[in-house]
């Protein structure tokens, strides 16, 4: 195993983590501010990917598609918040889970109705094709580096927005005491719509970025959603910082597990068995990590307020 391969795999883990962060940040923000469990977050990811693929195919430009994905997902988020989610804030988590699960089904069948059952095509833009050299003689794909870059920019932007702007102040206030900021004359329902649209926009961006790497198809959001939930549980529900650390931890642990576990087992088992057992263990690894973290820190690494 060379250094170059190791560095490449670490970057792969980081890239997966950054992508999970874009999903988890919105999820945890919505939970932190509104106390809502949104299972339909994966559908907004799918909306972003479909919007990007459709617009990119029509205009020939990935970048217009990317802008469209942000706009479409944020708009879909705002509409869903106003029509459905708004009625759920006062209800308990079971009702929220049921209603947002229904939204998954509506989004999935609606998307099929509009776009058909066959997966769509989306390629990475010519500007980001190719690879850059790594120390140690390896190469790394430029597009994946760009995803890491986007993740860093979004993380910094989100931090600045929450720490330095009026909107961020209101979001923090909403997290600590909802009734009080409403009493102070802040239009809480607009704030909720904005926060929901912001989370949706980030999910849509993630969907579009990842759509160029994999297939744009109905149901693409749900596997990512499960990982995003693991991330926010590890990071501490409601904490953006927790989402960032949790996402990178999950991304790196998952990638390195898939890479190293089968090789480690080669010392004990014949190759075919090592691949089988190693693969099975690797798929459990992040859940084992989650269980361990919860055993020692039941509220996650960066527990937000109760």
């Amino acid at each position: 195993m060379s250094t170059a391969l190791l560095i490449e795999q670490l970057l792969n883990g980081l890239q997966l983590g950054v992508m999970l962060f874009l999903m988890a940040a919105g999820l945890t923000l919505i939970f932190g501010v509104m106390g809502l469990i949104n299972l339909a977050h994966g559908s907004l990811y799918m909306v972003g990917a479909f919007a990007c693929a459709t617009v990119a195919a029509a205009t020939g430009s990935f970048w217009i598609g990317l802008a469209a994905s942000l706009a479409a997902a944020a708009l879909a988020g705002a509409i869903v918040e106003i029509l459905v989610i708004r009625r759920l804030y006062e209800r308990d988590h079971l009702d929220q889970v049921l209603a947002t699960f229904a939204l998954i089904l509506i989004f999935s069948e609606g998307t099929r109705w509009l776009f058909g059952s066959f997966p769509l095509y989306l390629d990475i833009p010519p500007l980001l094709q190719g690879a850059v050299p790594l120390p140690g003689g390896g190469q790394y794909q430029l597009y994946r580096l760009a995803i890491i870059g986007v993740g860093v920019v979004v993380a910094v932007g989100l931090y600045l927005m929450i720490a330095r702007t009026r909107l961020g102040m209101r979001i923090r206030a909403g997290e600590s005491d909802r009734e009080m900021i409403a009493a102070l004359g802040i239009d809480i329902s607009t704030l909720y719509t904005v926060v929901f649209a912001l989370g949706a926009g980030m999910a849509g961006l993630a969907g579009a970025l990842v759509g160029a790497l994999q297939s744009v198809q109905v149901g693409m959001g749900e596997p990512v959603l499960i990982l995003a939930f693991v991330v926010i549980v590890i990071g501490g529900i409601g904490s953006i910082k927790g989402a960032l650390f949790g996402a990178i931890l999950v991304g790196v642990v998952d990638t390195m597990g898939r890479f190293l576990l089968p090789q480690a087992l080669l010392f004990m088992l014949p190759p075919s068995q090592a691949a089988l057992v190693g693969g099975a263990l690797a798929s459990m690894l992040i859940y084992i990590v989650m269980a361990l973290i919860l055993a020692f820190r039941p509220r996650g690494l960066f527990a937000a307020h109760s």
């Binding site: 792969n12 994946r144 596997p223 898939r258």
Partner: peptide
């Protein structure tokens, strides 16, 4: 290599 069912990112395997 045996990958996970439903896996969508194969960067680690391709490396």
């Amino acid at each position: 290599i045996y990958t996970q069912v439903g896996q969508t990112d194969y960067a680690a395997e391709i490396a």
